[in-house]
Design a protein around this nucleic acid. Sequence first.
RNA 1: GCCGGAGUGGCGGAAUGGCAGACGCGACGGACUCAAAAUCCGUUGCCCGCAAGGGCGUGUGGGUUCAAGUCCCACCUCCGGCACCA
Length: 937
Amino acid sequence: MPKYDPATIEPKWQAWWDEHDTFRSPRLPANKKAYILDMFPYPSGDGLHVGHPEGYTATDIVSRAARMRGVSVIHPMGFDAFGLPAEEHAIRTGTPPRESTERNIATFRRQLKMLGFSYDWHREVATTDPGYVRWTQWIFLVLHDTWFDPETQRGRPIAELPIPAEVAAAGEQAVAAYRDEQRLAYQSEAPVNWCPALGTVLANEEVIGGVSERGGHPVVRLPLRQWMLRITAYADRLERELDSLDWPTSIKKLQRDWIGRSTGAEVDFFLPPVSGDTAAGFAAWKEHRVDTGFPEQAPDNVLRIYTTRPDTLYGVTCMVIAPEHPLRARLTTADRAATVEAYCEAASHKSDLDRTDLAEGKTGVFTGSSCVHPLTGELVPIWVADYVLASYGTGAIMSVPAHDDRDYEFAQTFGLKIVTVVEPATAESEPTAQDAAAPLFTGRGRAIASGPYNGMETDAFIGQVGTDLLEAGLGRPAVNYKLRDWLFSRQRFWGEPFPILHELDAAGEPTGVVRALDPEELPVPLPELTDFRPGNTPDPPLSRADASWLYVERDGKRYRRETNTMPQWAGSCWYYLRFLDPTNNEQFLDPEVERAWMPVDLYVGGAEHAVLHLLYSRFWHKVLYDRGHVSSPEPFGRLVNQGMILGEMEFTGYRAAAGGWISAGQQGEADTPMKIPAEQVEKQGEHFVLRDAPQVRVESRAYKMSKSRGNVVNPDQVVRDFGADALRLYEMFMGPLEATKPWSTTGVGGVRSFLDRCWRLVVDERAEALAVAAQVCEDEPDADQLRHLHRTIAKVTTDIDSLSFNTAIAKMMEFVNFATPLERRPRSLLTPFVKLLAPFAPHLAEELWALLGQAPPVSLADWPVADEQWLRDETIEIPVQVQGKLRARVVVPADADAAALEAAAAAEPKIAALLDGKQILKVVAVPGRLVNFVVKG
RNA sequence: GCCGGAGUGGCGGAAUGGCAGACGCGACGGACUCAAAAUCCGUUGCCCGCAAGGGCGUGUGGGUUCAAGUCCCACCUCCGGCACCA
């Protein structure tokens, strides 16, 4: 009668935990601490997806097990609630985003509670809470109040910024402007990615292949005033300090590649005056440079380039500048002006996709002018081409077609000269005549045709020429990063307003003076709007706010509020800090609390945040660290990415347009894919085929869950059908946490029947009322039972530490398989097992714990300790091989040495027969492992 | 193109260089039942064989080793990411 019924016991225990504040964490850890963090979700209107509970269950198991082992655990949850979908919903329906967001959060909260996660809900935050926004804005003020001191590689208060004498002399306004330029949060007019369909500007990272990441809408480039964050100042630290982190190497590498540090040299190429003696001018310039050295800023009379291969200087055959290069107009001769202008005009309209090398070939035009090679004195023509990016390095390159594939392609396209100056330094043969068939060589080697540097290896050459250029004042070593400053403003409604005022003159026009609000004036609330529609222009929706919001007066001056809002990343950059002190109204986080709990010990989330979220968070954290607001330089110690959960495995056959089936792989456009039920398919060799037509191959694959494919699994449904414990357990049993794996509904049924078996281990299912099974007794467990129990304890314990939940569950299944047939089940055998089960299937464990007469909650019971004595065997079975092939097994004492093993093996009748008459060449006997006879004859 | 990750039964997956396939799903057989479901017990990598037994097996080809899923070299396929960063 009393069958295992998750629908009743799960809500019951969830209510119990709530009432008893079972998972509330203290303000400060009582002893050893563990901060176990999930990437908080964006509360979409679709509710929880089965992908969410995967990582959440993993951290929940770790948290619950840690609590049972006496660790002070902090395990919070919240919501990343600003963002585009809520705003788009608002535009469609006219509902204010706050309303739909609150509704969605309520759904998410209900679903998360339904799964029995042991979050401390007292710490819940949403990035949209005014009490949270206040401190996001406050951190912006910190960024705005900070400049990066390159000397100390640290962010420092703007008040400490040294003001150059000439700036100070120019007056207060000049000083203010100088400061504004140096702040970590600064304004820029740079061209931005404007997406008309979304009505917003997007960060470079949000533009994938020329279209918006979200929605795939076209993006155009427009110049616009924007807030930028100077993340590039921290590039070096962001890269270097990755070393100290316990992160997957693949994620570290993604971040390194994204930061894209490269080392090389900047070199100045002399621009001869339009009229006058080029040779004499060049000589005079060189002499001047020897005296004055390499100037910080490139003067007007040079073209400054950046290269990672200064050893190829003698192979330069042309210079290429970006279309947006500041010297472009000056370098263009009158006869080329029309052509160059037309080219640059066209390039400005090209999307990033068109400018990548996916587009066919290289384009470019000659400017008509030339510069002088600093080492050879030869004239080098200057071209404009859009394969050179204005935003990287100096926006200009030296083109070395023989040793750079992009330059090679460019030279080939326009028939430019190719000069080989590096040859492969192969050990086996002295390179003879240059191999004309392979003019492109991008590897490292030995210099040729390079004047005094002939014969030098690439690395030595780079070092030497670097020194020489520096001495001659012609160049200097340089470091560059692919990482760009972070475009931090959005022209949307549903985001944090900036705590910034723009001063207005008498005519109501901005004077260009910016005033940051005082921290006491925060938060700046979002204005009430009725129309959320983005405009046709990049004018943000907030500019349509009431005058009462938009205009403010301070100290007798009129100001207009900043109407851009912050991007969604802002809130998620620091939520892990607010969780520690979520209701603090005095400061963003109490330093005592911060020191006690930080850094995060385990951070689990999807790999899609490998670069952006994790890089932005680290950046903010380092700024807060530099400014003394947090105590550690890195926020996240151990990071783990959970894998994606795919839809159920599908078989797809193809209906030929002409009728009948066509084998997968041979189908054309006109043939229609059709889903085939699994029972109509069978495996034949490498492939699946139709059972009724084995000559027809069928595709078998699991696809990413998506609404359009209709293979989305809904957690509510799974909980209804199998229970939350079954869902949790199944997600952990599917395979390794990090792996991508397909969903299988029958698999959920499998773990559910394991839970049923656990239930029946304790409960008499056929009794009228809930009662402990008759087999449960007060016997002392026997040796065999203790062996099984302690081995299970040992395995489950170590597997939780290594996040190998699938094998931990397998071990518990083995225990249940062992214990089920027992006619007498000692209570003291069952209670430790229920404890092991508790982190995985907490509701069932609480129920069984109570039924076994223990005081709840098992969630805070002591974790069992494996007793070494039961992990050892007295005798073991050892495989015996002859010629490496398994031929027999012998049972020997566990501590038998090699000689004893060999003797026992040789005595085994089957082995003796095989060895008879053979010459034994070698015997490998590994105690505790195996015996292998190597014989001849 | 470049950089990661992965290829093991019908399926998901286990395996400190030492018995490949733990555990689960599915399938098959048995017990219980009038019957079915549920449950319990058992079998289940492939091939040959009545059996005892034997052979073959971790994407492909080579190598190291007494011994390779695991280490090394080359290649193939799939998945993910990056993509003119000089």
